[in-house]
Amino acid sequence: MSIKEIAKRAQVSPATVSRVLNNPDYKCSSPQVRERIRKAAIELNYVPNEAARRLKTGSSSTEEKTCYINILMTRTDSAHVDPFFDELLRVVETEIHRNNCILSQVWYRAIFSSDKRCRRENIADIIEKMYEQTEGHCDGLIVIGKSNKEALALFRKKYKNVVCVNRNASSGVVDEVVCDGEKIAFMAVEHLIELGHTNIGYIGECHNEARYRGFVEALYDHHLELDPDFVIETNQTEAKGYEAMEKLLAMPDYPTGIYCANDITAVGVLKLLSRRKNIYMPSVIASDDIEQAQFTTPMLTTVHLPKEDMGKFALWLLLDRINNGHKAVTRMELECKLMVRSSCTSAQENGWSDYCI
Rank of each mutant, 00 (worst) to 15 (best):
R53V: 10
F155N: 03
D180Y: 11
K327S: 14
K240A: 11
N22C: 05
H222A: 10
K158L: 10
T265Q: 09
D309A: 13
M251F: 04
C28Q: 11
S342D: 14
M1L: 10
V284T: 03
L338K: 07
E333C: 11
V92I: 12
R156L: 08
C67G: 01
R36S: 12
F230G: 00
M251S: 08
A51G: 15
T265K: 06
M339P: 04
S13N: 09
V303K: 02
A79I: 10
E233I: 03
G140K: 09
R213N: 13
I96S: 00
L315C: 09
I184Q: 09
R19M: 12
Q11A: 11
Q11S: 13
V12R: 00
A185K: 00
I184Y: 02
K327C: 11
A286K: 01
S342N: 14
F84R: 01
E150L: 11
T74I: 07
K149L: 10
T302K: 05
I127P: 06
T234R: 00
L103M: 13
Y242F: 15
K337I: 12
G257A: 06
P255M: 02
K183S: 11
R9F: 11
D229N: 12
A188Q: 03
G268Q: 09
S147L: 09
E64K: 14
L195V: 04
P31C: 07
T302A: 04
G214Y: 01
P24E: 06
L103N: 05
V47Q: 14
A188P: 03
Y259P: 02
N49Q: 13
P282L: 03
T234I: 03
I193M: 10
H137M: 15
W352V: 12
P14E: 06
E225P: 00
Q133F: 08
H197V: 00
S353M: 11
G145Y: 10
P48I: 08
D77Q: 05
G204L: 04
N166I: 07
L192Q: 03
L88N: 01
A286E: 00
I322N: 05
S104F: 08
N208Q: 14
K116G: 01
A218L: 06
K27R: 13
C138L: 13
A239W: 08
K183P: 02
K312T: 10
L224G: 00
F84P: 00
S287A: 15
K327M: 13
A10Q: 04
L141K: 05
E291R: 13
Y254N: 00
I102E: 04
L89N: 06
Y259C: 05
D227Y: 02
P298G: 03
N199I: 04
L226G: 01
A261F: 06
E50W: 12
V143Q: 06
R75P: 01
A266I: 07
G58K: 08
S171F: 14
R34K: 14
S29V: 14
K27W: 09
M1H: 10
A239S: 14
H207D: 15
G311S: 08
I142Q: 06
V81Y: 09
E209K: 02
V267E: 09
D221W: 10
V216H: 02
R119V: 04
D139R: 08
G181I: 04
T16G: 02
V189I: 11
V216S: 07
E150A: 12
E135D: 15
H137S: 13
C67N: 10
L248V: 00
L249P: 00
S104K: 05
E93H: 06
R117H: 09
C118K: 07
K277M: 13
E238Q: 15
D175I: 07
E5A: 12
I102D: 03
